[in-house]
């Protein structure tokens, strides 16, 4: 279980997170929704230790993440970045097998390549893609390679940062289905940040809405439409009228 209590983070006068309390149960898929600039990415980076919170505690299975061994902690995570974040200088299979070619999870190169090819197949990419470089792939293919990299070491927890941004609706649907299938078959805990409501409904078990640096509402995805919270209602209907300022 991932548990956040009173997490705050400011950048100068910009108080991005103002006391986040959130729990994500093991094996569940939590989707964080919220407007642009609401702090969703910062929250995710705080959990991963890419950004240090100013205050509050982040616990993973009852242990404070800031005091854990970093390598052991990160070895439990996989992450799909918004833009893929593939390494330009490496061919696709080495991107996917990056973690398996070095560090504590290192395997022989042939074995790592075989796992990379299997993960590429899992996300619907042909073996011919393996020896191409990221710049030679379309946006949708890069996203799928990023997804293959995120699951290559079979992590217990997977984070997805805006997994469908910049994709056409069909490719977005493919990615949503893949995420749902992978999370279900691996039994992984998933945390996704997005403002794509189609993704929310496809991926989430539970939803939390982040607004003004705080969790505004949280609950099962099937209660999203009946939450009664005016912020959530405005967000999911995409209305310019409501408590969330249209001009920010």
């Amino acid at each position: 279980m991932i548990s956040l209590a009173g997490v705050t983070k400011s950048f100068g006068d910009n108080h991005v997170l103002q006391g986040i309390d959130l729990e994500i149960a093991r094996g569940s898929s939590m989707v964080i929704i919220g407007g642009s600039g609401s702090g969703k990415s910062v929250l995710l980076k705080c959990i991963l230790g890419l950004v240090w919170p100013d205050a509050g505690t982040i616990m993973l299975d009852g242990q404070n993440v800031t005091t854990q061994d970093r390598d052991a902690f990160l070895a439990r995570f996989g992450m799909l970045f918004q833009g893929g974040a593939l390494f330009d200088s490496l061919p696709v299979w080495q991107n996917v097998a990056f973690r398996l070619l070095r560090g504590s999870l290192k395997r022989p190169a042939e074995e790592a390549r075989a796992i990379a090819l299997e993960k590429l197949r899992r996300v619907g990419l042909m073996p011919e893609v393996a020896d191409r470089f990221p710049a030679e792939l379309s946006g949708g293919m890069q996203k799928r390679v990023g997804l293959a990299r995120a699951i290559a070491a079979e992590p217990e927890i997977i984070f997805f940062d805006e997994p469908t941004t910049g994709l056409d609706p069909i490719m977005a649907g493919v990615i949503n289905d893949l995420i749902r299938e992978i999370v279900t078959e691996m039994g992984a805990t998933a945390m996704t940040i997005t403002h794509d409501m189609t993704s929310v409904r496809a991926i989430a078990d539970n939803v939390a809405m982040l607004h003004a640096g705080r969790i505004r509402w949280t609950g099962p995805v099937d209660q999203l439409d009946t939450s009664g919270d005016p912020y959530v209602t405005q967000f999911i209907t995409g209305s310019p009228h409501g408590p969330i300022a249209a001009v920010r």
Binding site: L74, F77, G78, G83, A85, G103
Partner: peptide, 16 residues
């Protein structure tokens, strides 16, 4: 460029 495209963050998440 690696920094602005989050490749450096990706390195960290890959325990590197």
């Amino acid at each position: 460029t690696m920094k602005v495209t989050e490749q450096i963050d990706a390195l960290v998440t890959l325990s590197t």
